[in-house]
Design a protein around this nucleic acid. Sequence first.
DNA 1: TCTGGGGTCCTAGGACCC
DNA 2: TCTGGGGTCCTAGGACCC
Length: 419
Amino acid sequence: MIGLVDCNSFFVSCQVVFNPKLKGKPVVVLSGNDGCIVSRSREAKALGIKMGEPVFKVKHLIRKHKVYTFSSNFSLYADMSQRVMTILLSAAPRVSIYSIDEAFLDLSNIPREDLKYFAIDLKEKIRKWTGIPVSVGIAPTKTLAKVAVHKAKVDLSLKGIKIIKTKSEIDKELISFKVSDVWGIGRESARFLKFYGIDTAYQFTEMPDVWVRKNLKIFGLKTLKELQGSSHISFEEKHAPKKQIIRSRSFKNPIIEIEPLGEALASFAARAAYKLREQGSYAYKIGIFIRSSNYLQSHLRYSKSYEKKFITPTNDTSLLISATFECLEKIFQKGIGYKKAGVVLNGIVSQYEKQLGIFKKDQKELCASLIKVVDQINNKMGSKTVRYAAEGINERLRYRSEKKSKLYTTNWEDLLRVS
DNA sequence: TCTGGGGTCCTAGGACCC
DNA sequence: TCTGGGGTCCTAGGACCC
């Protein structure tokens, strides 16, 4: 059996832990630049505020119902996530961390009749030790565990725990489960299935393998098998190194000049390079993209990307920043208000797969030790304590984040005082 | 006026090889 | 006049996830 632990309204819950008076109130957390709604408390959902909705469209609801809003505070969420995950790692022999607020647990060593008590204990322990409420779903496959946790969240009488064991229990759940809510069935597939009259997960499980394989491809077939109760998605304990690293942001105000755009891209490159070194990798390719607002009329939109390849892969910040500038020179056009930009690292290899060049000397010793020192300082004193001048100095001006809470768990100055 | 920031995997098609 | 039958690798784009 596989368990899935999913934090309820995770970002909102992190805020509520440090503001207990928000319990039971409508609360939302916003995306970068305070643009969209990305997390909602139960009370906010009840008001009809949708996931991913732009804030300006629900301004009236926020005002009318006094909805508490927060800018996102990723340092806080990452730290709270780590606390929850630490508990999970001690609770099961194998744990697969799937996202910031979810993890799968291998429960094959727990007697079936004890699963319920295990779940109750675990849920309570997490609540007590971290303040984060979670839901638990347990089933024979990952996809069914997803179904279970979905049920556990929707049906309040279940108190946040749902276990699906037998074939008849599976069928019973799937009959009332929308196929569009199945993990792995997105908007396109759901629309396609609807065309053939398939609305529930149960109807989907009755379709022939060949038909599913042909129309929904290999992943559709895996999902079908998983819903039928046989495991086809591997457990994967430790997460593999990233095959692609992206750092990108939208800007508060459109950027028109090349210099500030270059500064933004340089800081993306620096952060991407740090991520790369953190996992001990090197990249063969760096690409950038720049674009105007997506919401302009189509003939006014501008969106370009450019990629540069290295002969020998690198994780040297200065090389990556200068490559970024080279790319920008190729695609920058005057007279455009750039609203979003990003840096993309591809062709990522480990230290051992790194091919040395025949003609060019490898990254100089000096650079490598310089970077090491910079990383050490920043790890100890906080990121960007030391940085490249190319990144500019007034990063704050580029982004909006007006309602950010304190760093309750990662900054001494922000520690809560209890009186 | 205001619209997130990451990722993964799969497939089709082009360029190229013998 | 008639013009094969295998492959590989790379890229762009789609679909999906949180």
